[in-house]
Design a protein around this nucleic acid. Sequence first.
DNA 1: GTATCCTTTCCTGGTT
DNA 2: AAACCAGGAAAGGATA
Length: 372
Amino acid sequence: MAATCEISNVFSNYFSTMYSSEDPTLASVPPAAALGADDLALALSSPQMPLEGAEKASWSGEQPQLWSKAQVLDWVSYQVEKHKYDASTIDLSRCDMDGAALCRCAPEELRLVFGPLGDQLYSQLWDLTSSFPDELGWIMELLEKDSMTLQEPLGDQGPFEQGSPFAQEMLEDYRQASPFYPGSVGAGAPSPGSSEVSTTGTGTSQSSHASDSGGSDVDLDAPDTKLFSGDGLPDCKKGDLKHGKRKRGRPRKLSKESRECMESKKNKHAPRGTHLWEFIRDILIHPELNEGLMKWENRQEGVFKFLRSEAVAQLWGQKKKNSSMTYEKLSRAMRYYYKREILERVDGRRLVYKFGKNSSGWKEGEVAGRRN
DNA sequence: GTATCCTTTCCTGGTT
DNA sequence: AAACCAGGAAAGGATA
């Protein structure tokens, strides 16, 4: 299926963009096969420090299961350095394994090979492997879901000044994949599985014709009531939303039946998600993906603006498997960041926020272009 | 089991 | 009038 290829493309492109923000050194890694014991020792004695330096390590953008031997070695050397571990005690002859093999190792095995460092390695590895699926799962889901339903090319999409063909390609994929892309609303009916978002809930995302002032939700109007209408989910949520007043605060969770209704759609594990501000940041630092959703007002200062607030909220809701997310709610969460100085207030400007001193990863220095 | 963090949900009231 | 902003209150879910 061609779509699948494209999806993989998008995925890998996005993936590497997302997780190797500072031009990785993939190319610089010698083939593992070419490494001898001396090389191993050398590698261990001069590790790459992926997180602080100008460059990221070869392993940093990939799932551990997919690491080559060289990448495994690279990662081990990084851990050695990080934990100030004496590499001379490591049984180098047993380090010769690829990521898949590494992931199969039990903690005892790692301890056997790496000594006390083995436990650290095991837990780090666990963190790495468990972080990957979720980080991109949401976008993969979007891509996969919509790849099944995308048919007709979308009409004119408005002006996009994407420089590179690469960007164009990505953009095209995203355009087709995302219901939030300008012009894409209603382009495809939801696939049977795309039940995550509905317009039930508090219903603030109804039709609205935003004015040109960068108003939100230009295209989250009528058609997407259909787009997210669904397959039972709405009923799950109606619950206590009766007219009249209700108690303050978050209502109790769904009834048993409702839960069952939800659970059939849930992943077994509810993996650790990124925080909202990170989600926002990630959209911002990937122009190919955020086109039309948000924009930088002042990149240096970290000032940004929601262009399609409800669309972003829906996307966030989709990521959190919350069908009733709205900009109203999202913005409340955003406002909590003021106190923690993850965001700073921007007075008098609607839909405009600014990253605060406790945020990170959005500065141009931190996000070196992988695409150059 | 408990505490804490990070939202999520709802609300009132104010501003654009 | 609608959309947005501000922030209190209470609750849920995940994690430490």
